[in-house]
Nucleic acid binder design. Structure first.
Lengths: 231, 231
DNA sequence: AGCGTCTCTTGAACACGTTCAAAATCTGGG
DNA sequence: CCCAGATTTTGAACGTGTTCAAGAGACGCT
């Protein structure tokens, strides 16, 4: 049996997401969400700490849809370049309906103190899942690369994906076609560079990249002071 | 003779910046700024469209200080790597005092609709100046590179700088030492890659990067609808 | 001096996100 | 069935950024 409180919670989040989709994030007020859901404003705040938190729902929805769809789409493919391309284009497909107000989401995500930040504690499960997808992209492919790069390539590809997302957020073209072009044309580049990483001249370069990433994450911030908000 | 209105304007912005520095952006209210400056709230809004706009002052201050300081510091140097390194470390120096609440600035800058966005119309003078600095970094150096890359390298370096800024915003380490490490260690990498761009195997790679950038900026967004706010 | 026009200034009012003490409802034990 | 405690719900109130109609000055012109 589903607890009553769970029902209220999902009623609120569902209503919120619907209104966000209909009218955009800024134009949807907490009062409107509460009224439409038939609860009080305070009740919404009993379940969600802030208006921002309500869109974590989208975050999860997009992430999950992307993971499953992408895994299906690359199932038969062996070519590294094709696999990576599919994963990124799938993300664009999944995210497209949310572009209008999804921007808002990613703007909030840019705040390092926000739990929505892709680097935050709270997003680490989602981040791990994304990195895992990239690991699979490599693992089941026929790519040949500098073995020293292999362990860290998933992280690098995830970073690359974050770059694509950043571009997408700023992309005003119809159907985000510029983002699609970016993917179509950078993926072969990346694939070629990954292949070239075996070259003797490039070895030191990839070695240094790997060691830099390791060193930087070793120095990772020791549990930030958790001040209430940015200050 | 300075117009009266200019005095009021700069009184307001000076007061705002002082209070931001003292108490942080979020904790400084428009009412407090107005009161401290001895004007009415409405008056502040006569000169500045929003609270965000008030921090454009910082933006400009950092950018200008960086341009002059960096140009001085690289004056005698010929080595490309050293020049690039100095330019970026200088930025970190100049920006350091503002890190605490400068984060806020760059969070707002992440909003594609904000005039503070580095890609916006309003920032294009500042952007041009930064790209110009990168052009000088290359021009007066002894760097050897694929000539086809030469025209576009400034833009690429600017993009790299934006990446460093993004990292810096999220950097919680003391004195932003992680950002410094990032610069110290990525600059040689970039310098090496730029040098390697003359290699036959890498030629197609750099060609494709250049042509991609050109194609993407050709497709540039045709005067966005300018809706009041993100939506 | 008087008048009209433009610039500058005011502060009350608005809409919003958020808080919180109080009320309502639910739950398990006697 | 009743009561105490926990959980859930309420909505008025607060503080905020922002707007706007109205007023106050400044300036040129006759």
């Amino acid at each position: 049996m589903v607890a009553k409180s769970e029902e209220t919670r999902s009623l609120i989040v569902a209503t919120a997401l619907r209104l966000f989709a209909e009218n955009g994030y800024d134009r949807t007020t907490m009062r409107a969400i509460a009224a439409e859901a038939g609860v009080s404003v305070g009740n919404a705040y009993y379940y969600f700490a802030s208006k921002d938190q309500l869109i974590q729902g989208f975050y999860d929805e997009i992430a999950n849809a992307h993971l499953t769809t992408a895994r299906e789409s690359i199932a038969g493919e062996r070519d590294f370049s094709a696999r990576l391309r599919t994963v990124l284009l799938t993300w664009l497909d999944v995210a497209e309906p949310y572009h209008r107000f999804g921007k808002q989401l990613f703007v909030n995500a840019a705040d390092p103190d926000s739990p929505l930040s892709p680097f935050s504690e709270e997003s680490s499960p989602a981040r791990d899942a994304s990195v895992g997808l990239m690991r699979d992209v490599i693992a089941d492919s026929d790519v040949k690369l500098d073995p020293d790069l292999r362990d860290d390539l998933p992280d690098l590809l995830w970073l690359y994906q974050m770059g694509v997302v950043l571009f997408w957020v700023h992309d005003r073209s119809n159907g985000q076609k510029r983002s699609r072009i970016l993917v179509e044309r950078t993926v072969p580049l990346i694939a070629r560079l990954v292949g070239l990483s075996r070259l003797r001249v490039l070895r030191p370069v990839s070695r240094e990249i790997v060691s830099l990433i390791r060193d930087l994450s070793k120095l990772d911030d020791p549990a930030p002071p958790r001040v209430q908000s940015s200050e």
